[in-house]
Design a protein around this nucleic acid. Structure first.
Lengths: 194, 194
DNA sequence: CTATTAATTAAACAGTGTTTAATTTAATTC
DNA sequence: GAATTAAATTAAACACTGTTTAATTAATAG
């Protein structure tokens, strides 16, 4: 059985994801297309469909990468076990910075939707869960004696709140009366909650 | 100068928005198209472009309607001046219910993005601001003596947090370990903040 | 060296938003 | 009332999109 040895499937997969990442970074989510990706890696769309089920799956993997990168910049902050409040402040600040500096890709993570009916493979919400879990360590220190369920809930509520502030602040929604910057909003949130 | 008297521009505008609303409600945001709208109102795409600048503008008006409807179900709750905490609980609960019962349209409000560079007309963030403002009345009662700036900030932080919880809970992000339901998360948020 | 089999492509399909030129239709002017 | 004029409306085109198909290329197996 003859296969063309230029690149392995794994290689093409990575090349495609790299190319897609660049396109999204430079042109934004809505300018991403299969033909652009294919052209960038020197193949045709057909090859893309050998490696990915469809564009949605490709984007899912790309978003997985973004979540991984976010994890990698936030995870090290958990080590600072001395001051949990400071730790949480740094985590939210890092999250915000990541969102700002990787705006297109971060947007894509939350804008992209699978067609009705299709739902995401298990590893995807797992990545998000792991991100949520990072908040549990400092929160456990802060609310000692509370159940793990309660800690997990608090972590998810806090992350979601920070996310909500970022999401609204970074889009059209809040450019009004000096509330366009998310930082003071997050400060206000943390002051109330910690 | 001769115009065809079947419908006025205003009428066509409304018919188009009605039709679009139905399509989004029944088929979802991503199945909305100019040709479908045109067909539904018995006209051609060209007519649509006489009345709207483009599809983005049409969607913007449609989202404006959705925001108006949300305002109309939340505004009456502000009247209950006796118990601000209860008032806020009811407002968030109503928000959540609205999001659940008008999922496609509510999604569209937050999924739709104008092309880079183009930004929304002033009346749009105004509508969002008015929605935020509804929270200020009960919050003012709750935090007496604080500056108007502080109240406004708190209102925006609270709304954004509730939105973040809704947004993550209603999409692929949290279907995990019993956190798929936003209600207990919002309860937790309010317990901490009020 | 031929047959097989898989990788790759070119082309097609059905859809999209938008623009253009052509065509109706109605009101205005002579 | 008929000819003119201008606006409303359409049909068709353009340049895209994601995806599928059949054809082609290249490498391996016998």
């Amino acid at each position: 059985m003859g296969r063309r040895g230029d690149h392995s499937i794994e290689q093409i997969k990575e090349m495609a994801l790299d190319a897609a990442e660049t396109i999204v970074r430079e042109q934004g989510y809505h300018h991403l297309s299969t033909r652009k990706i294919a052209k960038a890696i020197g193949y045709t769309v057909g090859t893309l469909y050998m490696v990915f089920e469809n564009l949605d799956e490709l984007i899912l993997y790309l978003n997985g990468r973004t979540l991984d990168q976010l994890y990698e910049v936030i995870e090290p902050l958990v080590q600072r076990q001395d001051d949990p409040k400071r730790c949480i402040h740094e985590m939210t600040h890092t999250y915000l910075n990541f969102a700002l500096q990787n705006r297109s890709r971060w947007n894509m993570v939350f804008e992209h939707r699978l067609p009705e009916g299709k739902d995401v493979p298990g590893w995807y919400p797992n990545k998000i869960s792991e991100l949520f879990n990072l908040l549990e360590t400092p929160l456990r220190q802060l609310h000692q004696g509370e159940s793990e369920q309660e800690i997990a809930l608090k972590a998810r509520v806090l992350w979601s709140s920070v996310h909500g502030i970022c999401a609204l602040a970074l889009t059209h929604s809040l450019q009004h009366l000096g509330f366009d910057s998310p930082e003071p909003m997050i400060e206000s949130l943390l002051k109330q909650n910690l």
